[in-house]
Write a protein that binds this DNA or RNA. Sequence first.
DNA 1: GCTCACCTTGGGCGTCTGCCCAACACTATA
DNA 2: TATAGTGTTGGGCAGACGCCCAAGGTGAGC
Lengths: 195, 195
Amino acid sequence: MSASTSAERGAEVRRRLLVAAAELIPEVGWHAVSTRAVAERAGVGAGLVHYHFRSVQSLLRHAVVEVMTQLLAEFPRVLSTDTSEDVVVREMLAALDDYSGTDATSLLFMEAYLASARDEQLRAELSHLLDDFRSALTAWLAARGTRAPAETAAVLAAAVDGVMLHRALHPGLTATAVAPVLRRLVSHSTEREQG
Amino acid sequence: MSASTSAERGAEVRRRLLVAAAELIPEVGWHAVSTRAVAERAGVGAGLVHYHFRSVQSLLRHAVVEVMTQLLAEFPRVLSTDTSEDVVVREMLAALDDYSGTDATSLLFMEAYLASARDEQLRAELSHLLDDFRSALTAWLAARGTRAPAETAAVLAAAVDGVMLHRALHPGLTATAVAPVLRRLVSHSTEREQG
DNA sequence: GCTCACCTTGGGCGTCTGCCCAACACTATA
DNA sequence: TATAGTGTTGGGCAGACGCCCAAGGTGAGC
């Protein structure tokens, strides 16, 4: 079949390995993901992992960066200068409703943050990823006249991840509960503010 | 020596195992902590781990709960009804300055949060721990007249952990940078607020 | 037909893992 | 002095680990 060259099938297997790895990281934890488990889930021989990737660590790094890039890329499109604060806050809360703190995506993010503490290359890639995300948020806040937009954006992004982090241990931390509080952050832009 | 009975020395070894485990968790990651590594750092034979603890998981659980209990217990004492908001925010920021996101304590907390997703007993214990912490914060906020004190306390606690989480990837996220933003959360208690 | 490059397999290597256990040291009681 | 209870050691077991590699399969270009 000319539609499926050897190289193309190779790329497909590589993709399946990345998907399998991204699934296993939240399930068993970063350090507990093994070459054999990834290969089994991807439906390929165990040796293939080290054909397509230099090491397990490299596979996990690629997998996590790929997933996070896709997810974070979806958000900035909602941020245009004429987007109301309600829409933005609602969007972030919708994200919070999707991610309970014990779901695969939340855990994948946390595992990635944690792994980046022991993997300099991963830290650099995630750092760049979050920079882009914060930049979009900062620009939107600045256009709205919010004080200290960069710092507010940073705290807002951190708060969302923090809520995600705490949520598994505090089910009452629902989106509707935190909405008014978070809105306080983006609303009172013209208030006095002591340095 | 009567000052050191067999039982007392046993308790001391058990304590050393807990300390060694609490050190190793941030260093190598939860799943990568092994009985032999803990025993070596504690300066005892490898078999002792399973004498004092049912399993490695049990050891890690005890270690992490002990450390977190001690650290969280220090905070509520600063919260009395006559404590000014400045002092409280300054106290939380001091905590942020101590914990850079890549230090042992920050990593230990994150590892614990993550591990609790796969360990029901640990989740219950951490949940209880954070409940107490939030209760103290809620009571203080309520006494100050802050709107939605429970929700604000939850978001505040989550924001601190979130900032810690992001900090390793964003060195500019200093305490002085986020201070005015966080203060916004506790300050404007009498503003209009849409539910 | 052949070569060549790429992909894939399954097994093997040495190392590490959690957990177990027989043997031993020590103290307190009888 | 004998006995019992507690703490401790180091080795052993079966299994899993990361990584490697010889061998084989399969299409593209000559």
